[in-house]
Amino acid sequence: MSSSRKLLALVAAGLFSSAAAHAAEPSLGLGQTATPEQIAAWNIDARPDGVGLPEGKGSVSDGDDAYQENCAMCHGTFGEGGKYPRLAGEGKLTGDRPEQTVGSFWPYSVTLFDFINRAMPYPAPHSLPPEKVYAITAYILNQNNLVGDDFVADKNSLPKVKMPNEGGFIWKDPRPDTHDSDCMKNCRPVASVKISTTAEGSRVTPRTTGPLDTDIPQ
């Protein structure tokens, strides 16, 4: 039994309990104990149920200022997007051009805080204090008509904001969902073989020889 399978088996059997493991020494003796201060410095994730959200709070009106200062140059004054993702709107998720905005698509409100906190603003990621991140989160939720103008986001209020599309996700892989066979001969009528679309003469295909093609229009 490989070490990984053994560990998995122990986990499954519930034998790898805290008490038992405390007794066992690390097998290699490498690594330093992570202190609470060290963990706190990097432990930035927040979950949909609110676990991991920091102290602090921010209102929609505070968020208006913080958003215009830090976000609007890319995502638009009203979250309408453009070159960068659209944030606001009750866009349709069906049809030829679905609009996956925060309001129409995102399943969990806390994910918005988590993402802004870790990755935004894009040129200076993880540079805003929690109060500003809460405020911007509140403002974007308000842009999407998901909270009122007087909403204040904090670790208790934010997880309670239910997103309209929470039930729109199937968190189970549907595959294998296709039904092709390993047929070798006469697998389809010859007459059925028709080209439906071709990329011949495609004007959106950049060159694949010579110098890098950097300015081809869509």
Binding site: S2, L7, V11, F16, S18, A24, S27, L30
Partner: peptide, 15 residues
């Protein structure tokens, strides 16, 4: 292997 690293930290059964 990640299993080697996780052997160093141990895993609680709720993990």
């Amino acid at each position: 292997k990640l299993s080697t690293l996780l052997e160093q930290t141990g895993l609680k059964k709720e993990g």
